[in-house]
Design a protein around this nucleic acid. Structure first.
Length: 211
DNA sequence: AGCCAGGCCAAGC
DNA sequence: GCTTGGCATGGC
């Protein structure tokens, strides 16, 4: 496979280096922390999510078992910094209730999507980073960068975009993990919503929409 | 001082 | 099916 999707991956990796997602704290179960983090970061900056996660750690609550028992009003207060805290608290509670009795190797995309508050992106994050399954994550940055580059259409739906990536990349979990993280980094640093910094963009030679 | 962030859902065409 | 509004805090 030699195509623009791979070229862009190599350029971004060269530019930013290995991102090593997902960040995990000590003494927590990676799957559980990733699941909580994936819910908290919905349409929310990671800086704010870190505050909420710190609150949970300081209160010794960053585990499914503890969060399952804690009063939801307490949970709401602790995750307040990451916004949408009423919905997210409910989603966390429901997620734990659903997942706690299912063996991890039986948790699939359908299971996750059946939970209210978990959509495709959140489900794929949990599958990829939490369960090491080959699901490519598509987010707002992915749509922005790759539609500007002319590699996808803006009106394409989530699953269509995901298919494009899967078709054009080797089925490699490490690449999926790294690529999504690199896309987020590039979206934050260079390919901004209003004033993208095209002069400093390492993939502008591919892009059809230079600002 | 607005605008935006690692989305999702329900309601209304 | 597709579009729109609501959800909410904190950083820049």
């Amino acid at each position: 496979m030699n195509n623009k999707f791979i070229q862009i991956y190599e350029n971004l990796l060269n530019e930013y280096g290995n991102q090593n997602w997902w960040p995990i704290h000590e003494n927590t179960d990676p799957f559980e922390e990733i699941t909580i983090g994936a819910i908290l970061t919905q349409n929310t900056s990671w800086k704010n999510v870190e505050k909420s996660i710190q609150n949970l750690i300081e209160n010794n609550l960053l585990s499914f078992e503890k969060l399952d028992k804690v009063d939801i009003e307490v949970l709401k207060k602790l995750i307040k910094p990451s916004g949408f805290y009423n919905q997210k608290a409910k989603t966390i509670k429901e997620t734990i209730k659903t997942l706690k009795n299912i063996p991890r190797n039986k948790i699939d995309r359908e299971t996750l999507l059946s939970i209210k508050g978990i959509g495709r992106e959140t489900a794929d994050c949990i599958l990829l980073y939490g369960l090491n399954k080959p699901f490519f994550v598509v987010d707002a940055y992915t749509k922005r960068i790759f539609s500007r580059a002319g590699l996808i259409n803006q009106n394409m739906k989530y699953d269509e975009i995901q298919k494009k990536f899967i078709e054009n990349l080797p089925k490699d979990i490490q690449i999926y993990k790294e690529y999504h993280a690199l896309i987020v980094e590039h979206g934050k640093r260079i390919c901004l919503k209003r004033n993208p910094n095209c002069k400093e963009c390492s993939i502008s030679y591919i892009c059809i929409k230079i600002f």
